[in-house]
Protein backbone atom coordinates (compact mmCIF):
# COMPACT_ATOMS: atom_id res chain seq x y z
CA UNK A 1 0.00 0.00 0.00
CA UNK A 2 1.25 3.49 -0.72
CA UNK A 3 2.25 5.95 2.00
CA UNK A 4 -0.87 7.95 1.17
CA UNK A 5 -3.20 4.99 1.77
CA UNK A 6 -1.62 4.33 5.17
CA UNK A 7 -1.13 7.84 6.46
CA UNK A 8 -4.02 9.91 5.07
CA UNK A 9 -7.73 9.28 5.36
CA UNK A 10 -8.63 8.65 1.71
CA UNK A 11 -12.15 9.45 0.55
CA UNK A 12 -14.39 6.42 0.14
CA UNK A 13 -18.05 6.26 -0.82
CA UNK A 14 -20.69 4.19 0.90
CA UNK A 15 -22.28 2.26 -1.96
CA UNK A 16 -24.53 -0.11 -0.02
CA UNK A 17 -25.89 -0.40 3.51
CA UNK A 18 -27.36 -3.59 4.88
CA UNK A 19 -29.10 -4.03 8.23
CA UNK A 20 -27.29 -6.96 9.76
CA UNK A 21 -28.70 -7.17 13.29
CA UNK A 22 -30.06 -4.69 15.85
CA UNK A 23 -27.74 -1.65 15.85
CA UNK A 24 -25.43 -3.43 13.42
CA UNK A 25 -25.03 -2.59 9.76
CA UNK A 26 -22.73 -3.72 6.99
CA UNK A 27 -21.42 -0.84 4.89
CA UNK A 28 -20.06 -1.59 1.45
CA UNK A 29 -17.43 1.01 0.64
CA UNK A 30 -15.41 1.97 -2.42
CA UNK A 31 -12.48 4.35 -2.66
CA UNK A 32 -13.44 7.45 -4.65
CA UNK A 33 -10.05 7.22 -6.38
CA UNK A 34 -10.27 4.06 -8.51
CA UNK A 35 -6.50 3.66 -8.52
CA UNK A 36 -6.56 3.19 -4.75
CA UNK A 37 -9.31 0.59 -5.03
CA UNK A 38 -7.21 -1.25 -7.63
CA UNK A 39 -4.16 -1.11 -5.36
CA UNK A 40 -6.09 -2.60 -2.45
CA UNK A 41 -5.38 -6.17 -1.43
CA UNK A 42 -5.61 -7.69 2.00
CA UNK A 43 -5.40 -10.89 3.96
CA UNK A 44 -8.33 -11.93 6.19
CA UNK A 45 -8.19 -10.32 9.63
CA UNK A 46 -6.76 -6.94 8.59
CA UNK A 47 -8.43 -3.72 9.65
CA UNK A 48 -8.94 -0.18 8.44
CA UNK A 49 -8.77 3.08 10.33
CA UNK A 50 -12.18 4.44 9.36
CA UNK A 51 -12.75 8.20 9.46
CA UNK A 52 -16.19 9.59 10.09
CA UNK A 53 -15.07 13.12 9.32
CA UNK A 54 -15.56 15.40 12.30
CA UNK A 55 -16.47 12.55 14.64
CA UNK A 56 -13.26 10.59 14.69
CA UNK A 57 -11.19 7.75 13.35
CA UNK A 58 -11.69 4.19 14.60
CA UNK A 59 -10.21 0.78 13.85
CA UNK A 60 -12.69 -1.43 12.01
CA UNK A 61 -12.00 -4.95 10.74
CA UNK A 62 -12.70 -5.79 7.15
CA UNK A 63 -15.66 -8.20 7.02
CA UNK A 64 -15.67 -9.01 3.30
CA UNK A 65 -13.84 -11.60 1.27
CA UNK A 66 -10.21 -10.94 0.29
CA UNK A 67 -11.04 -12.65 -3.01
CA UNK A 68 -13.27 -9.72 -3.98
CA UNK A 69 -11.51 -6.36 -3.66
CA UNK A 70 -13.54 -4.08 -5.95
CA UNK A 71 -15.19 -2.88 -2.73
CA UNK A 72 -14.83 -3.64 0.98
CA UNK A 73 -17.43 -4.35 3.61
CA UNK A 74 -17.21 -3.09 7.16
CA UNK A 75 -19.72 -4.46 9.67
CA UNK A 76 -20.21 -1.97 12.45
CA UNK A 77 -22.16 -1.86 15.72
CA UNK A 78 -23.52 1.53 16.82
CA UNK A 79 -21.57 1.69 20.08
CA UNK A 80 -19.46 4.88 20.28
CA UNK A 81 -19.40 8.45 18.96
CA UNK A 82 -17.98 7.72 15.53
CA UNK A 83 -20.12 4.65 14.90
CA UNK A 84 -23.19 6.54 16.11
CA UNK A 85 -22.47 9.24 13.53
CA UNK A 86 -21.89 6.62 10.85
CA UNK A 87 -25.11 4.68 11.35
CA UNK A 88 -27.55 7.30 10.00
CA UNK A 89 -25.34 7.89 6.95
CA UNK A 90 -26.74 7.03 3.55
CA UNK A 91 -25.55 5.47 0.33
CA UNK A 92 -23.41 8.03 -1.47
CA UNK A 93 -22.03 9.56 1.72
CA UNK A 94 -18.27 9.92 2.10
CA UNK A 95 -16.09 8.40 4.80
CA UNK A 96 -12.30 8.09 5.02
CA UNK A 97 -10.17 4.95 4.84
CA UNK A 98 -6.61 4.57 6.06
CA UNK A 99 -4.93 1.20 5.78
CA UNK A 100 -5.38 -1.70 5.67
CA UNK A 101 -3.30 -2.50 8.76
CA UNK A 102 -2.30 -5.57 10.72
CA UNK A 103 -0.96 -8.99 9.87
CA UNK A 104 -4.12 -11.02 9.25
CA UNK A 105 -4.61 -14.79 9.44
CA UNK A 106 -1.90 -16.68 7.53
CA UNK A 107 -4.46 -18.92 5.79
CA UNK A 108 -2.00 -19.94 3.08
CA UNK A 109 -0.18 -21.87 5.78
CA UNK A 110 -3.42 -23.62 6.77
CA UNK A 111 -3.90 -25.46 3.46
CA UNK A 112 -4.62 -29.19 3.66
CA UNK A 113 -5.71 -28.85 7.26
CA UNK A 114 -8.98 -29.11 9.14
CA UNK A 115 -10.09 -25.60 10.01
CA UNK A 116 -12.00 -24.69 13.16
CA UNK A 117 -13.54 -21.22 13.36
CA UNK A 118 -14.54 -19.96 16.81
CA UNK A 119 -16.44 -16.74 16.97
CA UNK A 120 -18.41 -14.71 19.50
CA UNK A 121 -20.83 -11.84 18.84
CA UNK A 122 -19.49 -9.24 16.41
CA UNK A 123 -16.22 -11.21 16.31
CA UNK A 124 -17.83 -12.92 13.34
CA UNK A 125 -17.06 -9.79 11.29
CA UNK A 126 -13.25 -10.07 11.32
CA UNK A 127 -13.52 -13.86 10.91
CA UNK A 128 -15.87 -13.75 7.90
CA UNK A 129 -13.09 -12.88 5.38
CA UNK A 130 -11.17 -15.99 6.49
CA UNK A 131 -14.25 -18.20 6.20
CA UNK A 132 -15.07 -16.74 2.78
CA UNK A 133 -11.50 -17.10 1.52
CA UNK A 134 -11.36 -20.71 2.66
CA UNK A 135 -14.83 -21.61 1.38
CA UNK A 136 -13.87 -19.86 -1.89
CA UNK A 137 -10.96 -22.27 -2.26
CA UNK A 138 -12.75 -25.20 -0.68
CA UNK A 139 -10.63 -27.96 -2.26
CA UNK A 140 -7.44 -26.58 -0.67
CA UNK A 141 -8.67 -27.22 2.86
CA UNK A 142 -10.01 -30.29 4.64
CA UNK A 143 -12.88 -30.44 7.10
CA UNK A 144 -14.36 -27.10 8.23
CA UNK A 145 -16.12 -26.39 11.52
CA UNK A 146 -17.66 -23.12 12.68
CA UNK A 147 -18.65 -22.44 16.29
CA UNK A 148 -20.57 -19.21 16.61
CA UNK A 149 -22.04 -17.87 19.83
CA UNK A 150 -24.12 -14.73 20.34
CA UNK A 151 -26.00 -13.11 23.16
CA UNK A 152 -29.36 -13.57 21.42
CA UNK A 153 -30.28 -15.14 18.10
CA UNK A 154 -31.30 -11.81 16.56
CA UNK A 155 -27.73 -10.58 17.07
CA UNK A 156 -26.25 -13.23 14.79
CA UNK A 157 -24.48 -11.60 11.88
CA UNK A 158 -24.40 -12.68 8.23
CA UNK A 159 -27.43 -14.95 8.48
CA UNK A 160 -27.42 -15.61 4.71
CA UNK A 161 -23.78 -16.63 4.81
CA UNK A 162 -24.41 -18.90 7.79
CA UNK A 163 -27.15 -20.64 5.83
CA UNK A 164 -24.93 -20.91 2.76
CA UNK A 165 -21.96 -22.26 4.74
CA UNK A 166 -24.09 -24.96 6.36
CA UNK A 167 -24.63 -26.28 2.84
CA UNK A 168 -20.95 -26.26 1.90
CA UNK A 169 -19.44 -29.71 1.59
CA UNK A 170 -17.88 -31.02 4.81
CA UNK A 171 -18.56 -27.75 6.68
CA UNK A 172 -20.11 -28.29 10.12
CA UNK A 173 -21.71 -25.11 11.51
CA UNK A 174 -22.78 -25.01 15.15
CA UNK A 175 -24.50 -22.13 16.91
CA UNK A 176 -25.38 -21.16 20.44
CA UNK A 177 -26.91 -18.17 22.26
CA UNK A 178 -26.53 -16.89 25.81
CA UNK A 179 -30.22 -16.11 26.21
CA UNK A 180 -32.72 -18.42 24.59
CA UNK A 181 -35.77 -16.73 23.05
CA UNK A 182 -39.04 -18.51 22.12
CA UNK A 183 -38.03 -18.67 18.44
CA UNK A 184 -34.63 -20.20 19.20
CA UNK A 185 -34.54 -23.98 18.93
CA UNK A 186 -30.77 -24.40 19.11
CA UNK A 187 -28.19 -24.57 21.86
CA UNK A 188 -28.13 -22.20 24.82
CA UNK A 189 -24.83 -21.51 26.61
CA UNK A 190 -21.27 -20.38 25.99
CA UNK A 191 -19.60 -21.18 22.69
CA UNK A 192 -17.07 -23.58 24.23
CA UNK A 193 -19.97 -25.88 25.18
CA UNK A 194 -20.30 -26.66 21.47
CA UNK A 195 -16.78 -28.06 21.15
CA UNK A 196 -17.80 -31.51 22.39
CA UNK A 197 -20.62 -31.70 19.85
CA UNK A 198 -18.29 -31.63 16.86
CA UNK A 199 -15.95 -34.44 15.98
CA UNK A 200 -12.73 -32.42 16.12
CA UNK A 201 -9.48 -34.08 15.21
CA UNK A 202 -6.78 -31.84 16.64
CA UNK A 203 -3.81 -33.57 14.96
CA UNK A 204 -4.24 -31.86 11.61
CA UNK A 205 -6.32 -28.86 12.67
CA UNK A 206 -5.98 -25.11 12.93
CA UNK A 207 -8.31 -23.03 15.09
CA UNK A 208 -9.04 -19.35 14.43
CA UNK A 209 -10.70 -17.42 17.24
CA UNK A 210 -12.27 -13.96 17.20
CA UNK A 211 -14.42 -12.69 20.02
CA UNK A 212 -14.44 -10.88 23.34
CA UNK A 213 -11.37 -11.36 25.61
CA UNK A 214 -13.14 -13.73 28.00
CA UNK A 215 -14.28 -15.94 25.11
CA UNK A 216 -10.76 -16.10 23.65
CA UNK A 217 -9.41 -17.04 27.07
CA UNK A 218 -11.80 -19.96 27.58
CA UNK A 219 -11.77 -21.08 23.95
CA UNK A 220 -8.00 -21.55 24.14
CA UNK A 221 -8.28 -23.49 27.42
CA UNK A 222 -10.94 -25.80 26.01
CA UNK A 223 -9.16 -26.35 22.69
CA UNK A 224 -6.00 -27.31 24.55
CA UNK A 225 -8.01 -29.82 26.60
CA UNK A 226 -9.15 -31.45 23.37
CA UNK A 227 -5.52 -31.70 22.26
CA UNK A 228 -4.81 -28.56 20.26
CA UNK A 229 -1.20 -27.36 20.58
CA UNK A 230 -0.40 -23.65 20.97
CA UNK A 231 0.95 -23.48 17.44
CA UNK A 232 -2.40 -24.66 16.05
CA UNK A 233 -4.38 -21.82 17.62
CA UNK A 234 -4.72 -18.28 16.26
CA UNK A 235 -6.74 -15.49 17.82
CA UNK A 236 -7.39 -11.88 16.87
CA UNK A 237 -7.21 -9.28 19.63
CA UNK A 238 -9.12 -6.04 19.98
CA UNK A 239 -7.61 -2.70 21.04
CA UNK A 240 -8.57 0.89 20.24
CA UNK A 241 -5.76 1.92 17.92
CA UNK A 242 -5.30 5.58 17.09
CA UNK A 243 -2.62 5.24 14.41
CA UNK A 244 -2.44 1.64 13.16
CA UNK A 245 1.30 1.92 12.60
CA UNK A 246 2.87 1.14 15.98
CA UNK A 247 3.37 4.79 16.92
CA UNK A 248 0.58 5.95 19.25
CA UNK A 249 1.07 3.06 21.71
CA UNK A 250 -2.62 2.60 22.53
CA UNK A 251 -2.57 -1.07 21.54
CA UNK A 252 0.72 -1.85 23.29
CA UNK A 253 0.38 -5.07 25.27
CA UNK A 254 3.55 -5.73 27.26
CA UNK A 255 5.64 -4.34 24.44
CA UNK A 256 3.76 -6.06 21.63
CA UNK A 257 1.77 -3.89 19.24
CA UNK A 258 -1.62 -5.34 18.36
CA UNK A 259 -1.73 -3.10 15.26
CA UNK A 260 1.56 -4.15 13.68
CA UNK A 261 2.52 -7.42 15.40
CA UNK A 262 -1.14 -8.51 15.35
CA UNK A 263 -4.08 -8.31 15.57
CA UNK A 264 -3.72 -12.05 14.88
CA UNK A 265 -1.47 -13.94 17.28
CA UNK A 266 -0.61 -17.60 17.52
CA UNK A 267 -1.37 -19.47 20.72
CA UNK A 268 2.36 -19.51 21.51
CA UNK A 269 2.51 -15.70 21.24
CA UNK A 270 -0.73 -15.30 23.20
CA UNK A 271 0.62 -17.42 26.04
CA UNK A 272 3.33 -14.79 26.55
CA UNK A 273 0.95 -11.83 26.48
CA UNK A 274 -0.85 -10.66 29.62
CA UNK A 275 -4.24 -10.19 27.97
CA UNK A 276 -5.86 -8.73 31.04
CA UNK A 277 -3.34 -6.75 33.05
CA UNK A 278 -4.09 -7.09 36.73
Amino acid sequence: MSEKMLTEPCQAKIVKIKDEAPETKTFTIKYVDEALQKALHFTPGKFFMLSIFGYGEIPISISSSPLKTDSVELTIVDVGNATHALHPMKEGDIVGLRGPFGNGFPIQKFRNKDIVFVSGGCGMAPLRPAVKAIVGKRSEYKKLTLFYGCKRSDQMLFKEDLKEWSGVENFNTLFTVDEGTPDWKGEVGVVTKLFGKADLKPENSIAMIVGPPVMIHFAIIELKKIGFKEGQIYASLERLMHCGMGKCAHCNVAGTYVCTDGPVFSGAELAKLPLEEK
Partner: peptide, 10 residues
Protein backbone atom coordinates in the same frame (compact mmCIF):
# COMPACT_ATOMS: atom_id res chain seq x y z
CA UNK B 1 6.64 10.25 26.36
CA UNK B 2 5.00 10.37 22.96
CA UNK B 3 1.74 8.40 23.25
CA UNK B 4 -0.91 10.33 21.38
CA UNK B 5 -4.58 10.14 20.52
CA UNK B 6 -6.39 11.53 17.52
CA UNK B 7 -9.43 13.69 17.97
CA UNK B 8 -11.78 15.27 15.45
CA UNK B 9 -13.37 18.63 16.18
CA UNK B 10 -15.96 20.48 14.15
Amino acid sequence: CYCFLTLDKF
